[in-house]
Simulated scan of single mutants.
Amino acid sequence: MTAVTMHLGEIGQQLRAFRLESGMRADEIAARLGVSRAALYRYEKGEVIKLDTVQRLAELLNISPLTLLGVGIEYYSCPNHFFQKITQIEGDIEQILQVSDPVCYQVTSPAYDAILLEAHACQQEKEGSAVIDAPPILAQSKRRALYSQRKPSIISMLPENHIIDFLTHGVGASFPMSAPLRHKARQVAVQEIRNIITLIDSVPMGLQFSVVPKNISTTSCIFMRRNELMAVAINPFRSDCSAARTSGIAMITSSPEAVATHKQMLETLWQTSLKGQDAIDRLKTLVEQHGAV
Rank of each mutant, 00 (worst) to 15 (best):
M1K: 12
A3V: 10
Q13F: 01
F18S: 00
L20K: 07
M24L: 09
R25V: 00
R37H: 03
A38E: 09
A38F: 05
L40H: 05
R42G: 08
D52E: 15
T53L: 02
R56Q: 14
A58H: 07
L61D: 07
T67K: 03
L68F: 11
Y76F: 15
N80W: 05
F83C: 03
E90A: 06
D101E: 13
C104P: 01
S109D: 01
P110K: 06
Y112E: 07
E118F: 00
C122H: 09
P135Q: 07
L138D: 09
S141L: 09
K142V: 00
R150G: 04
S153H: 05
P159R: 02
P159L: 01
T168W: 01
A179D: 13
A179G: 08
L181M: 08
H183P: 02
V188K: 02
I197N: 08
D201Y: 07
S202V: 09
V203P: 02
V203G: 02
M205Q: 07
L207D: 12
F209M: 14
V211N: 05
K214T: 00
K214H: 04
S217I: 07
S220P: 10
S220N: 14
S220L: 13
M224D: 12
A231Y: 10
I249G: 02
A260C: 13
A260G: 07
M265L: 11
L266I: 14
S273A: 14
L283R: 04
L283H: 03
L286E: 04
H290N: 03
